[in-house]
Amino acid sequence: MAEKDVFLTVEGLKKLEKELDKLKTVKRKEVAEKIKQALAFGDISENSEYDQAKNEQAQLEERIAKLEMILRNAKLIDDEDISTDVVSIGSKVVVKDLEYNEEMEYTIVGSAEANPYEGKISNESPVGKALLGKKKEEIVEVRVPDGLIKYQILSITR
Rank of each mutant, 00 (worst) to 15 (best):
D79Y: 09
V87D: 00
I64N: 01
I70V: 15
E137V: 03
L148E: 09
K150A: 04
E80L: 15
E19K: 08
G119Y: 03
K29D: 14
V142E: 00
I149L: 12
E49C: 04
L60V: 09
K150I: 00
V93P: 00
F7K: 02
T9N: 05
K150D: 01
G119T: 06
V140R: 00
L20T: 11
K96H: 03
K120N: 10
V86G: 03
S122W: 02
Y151V: 04
M104P: 15
F41I: 10
E17P: 01
P116C: 14
D5V: 15
V94Q: 03
D85C: 03
L60I: 08
M104K: 12
E46G: 13
S45A: 13
G42Y: 05
K120C: 07
F41H: 12
E19L: 12
I156D: 03
S111F: 09
G42C: 02
Y100H: 15
K18N: 10
V144C: 06
G133N: 06
E33N: 09
K96P: 03
E11P: 06
L20Y: 06
K134V: 00
Y50D: 06
R28E: 14
A74F: 03
V109D: 03
I70A: 06
K27I: 12
K4W: 06
D21Q: 11
L154G: 06
E105S: 09
K136F: 01
A40Q: 11
L20I: 05
M69H: 08
Y106P: 11
K134I: 02
T157R: 14
L98H: 07
L13S: 13
E80D: 14
Y117N: 10
N73S: 07
S83P: 00
Y100Q: 13
Q37T: 14
K36C: 03
L13H: 08
P116T: 15
E102K: 14
L76W: 09
K92Q: 09
E113R: 07
T107S: 06
Q59P: 13
A112S: 11
I44G: 03
V26M: 15
V94A: 02
Y151S: 02
E141F: 04
N47L: 09
E49Y: 13
D5T: 14
D5H: 12
V26P: 00
V109E: 04
Q37L: 15
D21S: 13
P145E: 06
I156A: 05
K92A: 10
E105N: 04
Y106V: 03
L148Q: 12
E46P: 00
R158G: 02
